[in-house]
């Protein structure tokens, strides 16, 4: 086995997902600690462009497998290529993202090659030539330290946003890898749908069953990559309540998040849910409006840089883990805050 550390890049529709750069950066750091090389594996279309970005974030080698088959079929071709590469090169460790794609590929590769797989890792260190991982348990109330045992390449699935992107400015050498043939009994993708509502500005739309649902502006950063997030919960009172959240987000250049209560009520699409069963986010600033701060919500935002909470209940749990808490009515404070930020930015 080599001392190399790999990152699985994620390409969707020819575009490299931000998580790939986080993984590549971490692979570079860990490869250095092991005395090996950092590499990334990129499968899909536009892999050349992806390789350049991955190289700039630490990958010394990029195994690039260009092919439409990766867009046309779910997971099976990706797992086949990656498993073959792992068998051939025997890296010490492969890093996967905390995404649907990362999970599905890692599980197939682990099953196929009989390798150890640990998911939801929030921290990694190297001790005595082995990785030691931290995995949050019980909604983040405990941190469990885990290690691998037995032989073979270790597969490590990170939590979303566990690792920062480090742009070291390198250039990766590219190794072309042929794409496999279409799988005989594959899961075939016939195309994206339901993206028509993805307008530039946030607006009230209609869900398939006819009820009102807030559709946040599609132009802003994905939650996982956002620097500032303004989130709304049940305290908004309805989908229309997101209008003021959107207005504040717009002046701050922020993305819009939500609690599960707001998502379950059908006020905003699931893609905006923050928490244990939603996204794990790590913005510089997280502004929670009308969110009580249940452990499952905290599990997704507890490691944000700064947390600001606006809630009318002084006993809301969120006041136990915020840097600035406003005990007040969001219907008054949020619009005033939007105006105050506008004034400040104008000055």
């Amino acid at each position: 086995m080599s001392n190399d550390v790999w990152a699985l890049a994620e390409i969707a529709g020819g575009k490299l997902a931000g998580i790939s750069l986080q993984l590549s950066s971490k692979a570079a750091e860990l490869a250095k600690a092991f005395g090996g090389n950092a590499a990334a594996v990129a499968m899909g279309t536009n892999t050349q462009a992806a390789a350049a970005e991955l190289g700039a974030c630490g990958a010394q080698t990029v195994y690039a497998s260009e092919g439409a088959v990766y867009d046309e079929y779910l997971i099976q071709p990706h797992a086949e290529t990656l498993a073959a590469l792992i068998q051939q090169h025997q890296p010490k460790l492969v890093l996967f993202g905390g995404t649907n794609y990362g999970r599905d590929v890692a599980a197939r590769v682990a099953a196929r090659l009989g390798l150890g797989l640990e998911y939801n890792v929030s921290e990694v260190s190297v001790e005595g030539g082995e990785v030691v991982m931290t995995v949050p348990a019980f909604g983040g109330a405990q941190a469990v330290r885990m290690a691998f045992q037995g032989e073979g390449t270790r597969l490590l699935g990170a939590r979303q946003n566990a690792f920062p992107t480090v742009r070291s400015g390198g250039t990766a050498s590219i190794e072309q890898v042929p794409a496999p043939a279409a799988p005989a009994n594959g899961a075939k993708v016939s195309g994206p749908f339901g993206t028509e509502g993805a307008a530039e500005a946030g607006h009230l739309g209609k869900a398939p069953d006819g009820h009102d649902i807030w559709m946040p502006a599609a132009s802003r950063a994905k939650l996982e990559e956002a620097q500032i997030i303004v989130s709304g919960g049940r305290g908004l009172g309805g989908p229309q309540g997101f209008e003021q959240i959107e207005a504040l987000a717009a002046v701050l250049g922020a993305s819009v998040g939500a609690s599960r209560a707001a998502v379950d009520a059908g006020w905003i699409p699931y893609a905006h849910q923050v928490g244990q069963t939603g996204k794990t986010v790590k913005p510089v600033v997280y502004i929670a409006c009308g969110i009580s701060g249940a452990v499952q919500h905290k599990a997704g935002m507890g490691t944000s840089g700064l947390v600001i909470a606006i809630n009318k209940d002084k006993d809301a749990p969120i006041f136990g883990f915020c840097d600035l808490g406003i005990v007040g009515d969001l219907n008054v404070v949020v619009p005033q805050l939007t105006e105050a930020v506008k004034r400040r930015k104008g000055s």
């Binding site: 390798l115 150890g116 797989l117 640990e118 030691v132 949050p136 348990a137 983040g140 109330a141 405990q142 941190a143 469990v144 330290r145 885990m146 290690a147 691998f148 045992q149 037995g150 905290k298 507890g302 947390v307 136990g320 883990f321 915020c322 840097d323």
Partner: peptide
Amino acid sequence: REKALGAEKVSTQR
């Protein structure tokens, strides 16, 4: 293929 080494309580209070 994985083993737990130990666990500790995390304080996330601010």
